[in-house]
Each structure stands twice: as C-alpha cells, then as structure tokens.
Computed example of a mutant assay.
Amino acid sequence: MSEAPVRTDVAIVGAGPVGLFAIFECGMLKMHCHVIDTLEVPGGQCAALYPEKPIYDIPGFPRVGAAELIEQLLEQAAPFEPVYHMDQRVEKLERNGEWWRLTTSRGSVVEAKAVILAAGVGAFGPNRPPLENLQSYEGQSVFYYVTKPEDFRDRSVVIAGGGDSALDWSILLADIARKVYVVHRRPKFRGAPDSVAKLHALAEAGRIELVVPYQLDRLEGQDGALQAVIVRDFDDAERRLEADRLLPFFGLSMDLGPIRDWGLDLDRQALTVDPFTCETNLPGIHAIGDVASYRNKLKLILSGFSEAATAAHAIHPRVHPDEELHWEYSTTKGVPGKA
C-alpha cells in the first residue's frame, strides 16, 4: 500500500556522486530535494564497489579515495537538508497535474516539480554464484561489497573471482584478515598488471593462498554462519576451505529496470537529453551522469558534476516561475550555515 505523498521541489533518482552533487546545485538555487536510491547507503558504485580505490580526475584532488569523495559530497549537500529514501527503487513515474509522482518499491510516494535521473547505468546488483542456500548466508557470512575492511579483521576469508575487485580486496585484506584464499577458475587473472604482480608476491610470501584452478561448489554452515567453502577443480577433485566469510566478485548485472517503461527516449542503456539543459523528451525530467546520452558525451564523474549544474539551472524556472534567477558565484553567495 502506498504512503501519503510527500512533496518537494526536485526528486533525484540515484545517490551516487553525481546525484549528491545535484543536491548542492539545486540547494544553491533554493530548491529542496528528496533522493531515492536502491542501495542502503548513499554513494552508488563508489560506496558499494570500490570505497578504497583512488580517483585521480576530480579537480582540486590529485588523489582522493572513493569513500572520501562520497563523505565530502554528503557534507557539501548537508546544509540543504535533503531527504534520503534508501534501499528502494522507483517503480512508477507518472504525471499528477503539475507534479511528477514517483512511487517506490517500498510504497513511498514523492511528488516533485522536476525530476533528475542520476541513475548511473541503472539499478545494479551482484552476479551471484549458483550455490545452494546462498541467500541464507548473505549479509552475515557472504558479502558482495566491502564497505568496512575492519569488519574482516582476524576472519578467514574466501575471495572468488579473477578481476580487479577480487585482486584489490585480496591485496588489502591480506593485512587485515587471519587467512585469505583466492579462488579462480584459471591461473591467469584479469586485473591490472600491477595488481596481479602484487597478488603473486603476497602468495609467494605466504600471506594469501591462491586456490587455482578451482570453482565454488557449495557452502557449509548453519543459521547463516559460514564454516567452510567447498571448491572443485576440473578433474572433479574437492577441497575444503575453512572460512567464515565469502566474497564472490563475479561482476554486476545492470539494468535500467522500470525506467525503460516511462516513455523516455532511449539510446541503448542511456537516456537521450538536450546537452544545453539535460532535459529528456519529457518536460521536467532531466538526466545526468552515465545515464544521460548526447553527442560527444564523456562518461566521467566531472562531466556529471557539470551536468548537475546545468540541470539545476534549467529546472529553476519550473520550481520558481515568478522569480528571476540572478546567479551569483558561491564565493559571494555563500552556503547556509557557513561563514
């Protein structure tokens, strides 16, 4: 059953870095935002997939960790008091007079004068290995993302996969976990050459154990508490790895989901927008970041930041139709609560 609708100036779909910066840009123009995201915490892929990874192309930051960038963006948005609706997906988008009505998978209803779709490549989730009773371990012993490496201190961890995520976390957790097994179906890994070299160096030093060529076969445990991971090679030989944590890194499945059914013009997995306003074919619906498509589009975080500003300025007349916009630089205008 849907809740009573709440009304706001702008609804932002997606709480990744670009969506978070859109809160700031709208706030500077006196527009309040509600933000909806499928993940449990803000940050998008930066928070869910690579919080420890450095980013090098953010202006003013020669190097910034993904998690640190999200923390800074949240702090930057905080003075404008956004409302976050996390762990839910927008299922329906429909017109209600002068308002756009968004209904989520949890029954929340948000009505807004304008909508900014900052959904990245769409809702994403992990590619789960085909293991019996896997879901009974998820969230307690099996995790697809690492948000707090300290949660794995002194744990015995099996990491499955051969790409960058598997390598990065194997290297980082080697200094934290009691034991790290790396399970991959072949001896060759697909990650960055420097990471592959570090992985083999750690294995030679005895700080991690490479379990290759093996694949996950089944889990042993009780009531969500993992006790062992059983792996099997291509000769049908088994190994039992005593472990209390499993991190399967087999990539993501990404899909625009219900967005496809909202009558928006699509360009493959993206939405066609006017580059001068970031508006879609539906008036009042804007798209920014990776989900937006136009000629010579660059899929960079900094491009998404620029698009957030473009969309906010284009939306302002819709939210404040009787107010002429006299834009001032932030250095002269300031931010609420800041000197």
Rank of each mutant, 00 (worst) to 15 (best):
A166D: 09
G191P: 10
E204Y: 01
R95K: 15
E150F: 05
G206T: 07
V180I: 13
P187R: 04
E94H: 11
I176R: 12
L199I: 08
F124R: 00
G120H: 06
E209N: 02
A118M: 10
R178V: 05
L131W: 06
K188A: 13
P213Q: 04
A123N: 06
P126T: 01
P126S: 03
G139K: 05
D154I: 08
V180L: 03
A201M: 04
V115W: 09
V158F: 01
T147C: 07
R186W: 05
A174C: 11
A112P: 05
R155V: 06
Q215V: 13
G162T: 03
R128E: 09
L172A: 13
L102Q: 03
A166T: 09
I116E: 04
G139R: 05
Y144I: 01
D154P: 03
E111V: 05
W100G: 07
G125Q: 11
G161Y: 04
D217Y: 12
V180C: 06
S156N: 13
E138W: 13
V183T: 07
E150M: 12
R178T: 11
Y214V: 00
A197H: 12
P149D: 02
V146S: 00
P187M: 06
S105C: 06
L134H: 11
D217I: 02
T104F: 12
Q140N: 12
A201S: 13
T104M: 10
R95E: 14
L219R: 06
S105F: 07
N133P: 02
R106H: 15
L216A: 00
V109D: 10
P193Y: 10
S156Y: 05
R207S: 08
F143Y: 12
A205L: 10
G163V: 02
R185I: 00
L199Q: 09
V158R: 06
Q135G: 07
V157W: 03
A205H: 04
I176L: 14
I176G: 02
H200D: 05
R190G: 03
E111H: 07
D154M: 10
R218H: 15
G120C: 10
D217F: 13
Q215W: 09
V196C: 13
P126G: 01
L173P: 08
I116R: 04
P130S: 01
P129N: 01
V110H: 11
D164Q: 10
V142W: 08
S141P: 02
G97L: 14
A119K: 01
N127W: 06
P187Q: 06
L167D: 08
K179A: 10
L173D: 04
T104G: 09
D175T: 14
Q140P: 02
I159W: 00
R218E: 10
N127S: 10
R128G: 01
I208K: 00
G161M: 08
K148R: 14
V157T: 09
D175E: 15
K198I: 07
W169R: 06
S170E: 05
W99Q: 08
P193S: 12
L172Y: 08
I208C: 06
Q215E: 15
V158G: 08
S156W: 08
E94T: 13
R218I: 05
Y144D: 03
F143A: 03
S165L: 08
S141D: 00
P187H: 09
D175S: 15
V183K: 00
V121D: 09
D194A: 15
